[in-house]
Amino acid sequence: MLGTLPGTRRVEQIMGMPIVLDVRDEHVGDDVVQGVFDWFRWVDSTFSTYKDDSEISRLNRGILALRDAHPDVVEVLDRCERLCVETDGYFDVHAASADELDPSGLVKGWAVDRAAALLDAAGLRNYAVNAAGDMRLRGRAVPELHWRVGIQHPLEPDRVARVLDTTDLAVATSGEYARGAHVLDPHTHRPPSGILSVTITGPDLATADAYATAAFAMGAGRATHWTARLHGYEAMTILADGSVLSTPGFGS
């Protein structure tokens, strides 16, 4: 049934999450698709905190010096530091443990951004790359339609809270409903309160994802004010009282 759509679709479980590549251009080389998934596997082997021989694990054990790490590792950790400052410490690679780095919160979005660059370089203009609900979109789903992205309803798993009709955008959602309390406010080490999810849209997924994580960790009191002042990124915050607060450019 999907065979009648142009392009190709593929899902693989990498980095502990389903990664979906959905290309809608007519002609897609198998080598391009393979290259994208090879890239994600390299990211996993380099950045995973679950693999003892990853560079992040070796940095954490003190058997790899930062100056000897791969330039991509240095770049990711540098961006994590800058985002930590930009988010008043709410996006923090040390959120789970003071002694260990965990840049996973940036790695996923960053890896998807780089995958999108691989697709761009291959001449593809209509695609979606979705890593566990955070995605980069380009072009159109079919020539006459934009991509239609549902924002997961935080309380009803088979529904969506909003539908974005969009193109050329990164979309990231951080929330509490999937795995229980896995996001902590790094200042209080407690789960945030009064907030169900934050969705951020903008040009870059790594940034959007970090902003979503930070805003969610802030909790209901602070998140909406903070997201209202972002530059180049729009936000939709769903609060526990059932209200939805969106910046004026969200979804437009």
Binding site: P18, W147, V149, S197
Partner: peptide, 11 residues
Amino acid sequence: GINMISGASDS
């Protein structure tokens, strides 16, 4: 009619 879903659904 939706192509993709954005959510904190993880794995």
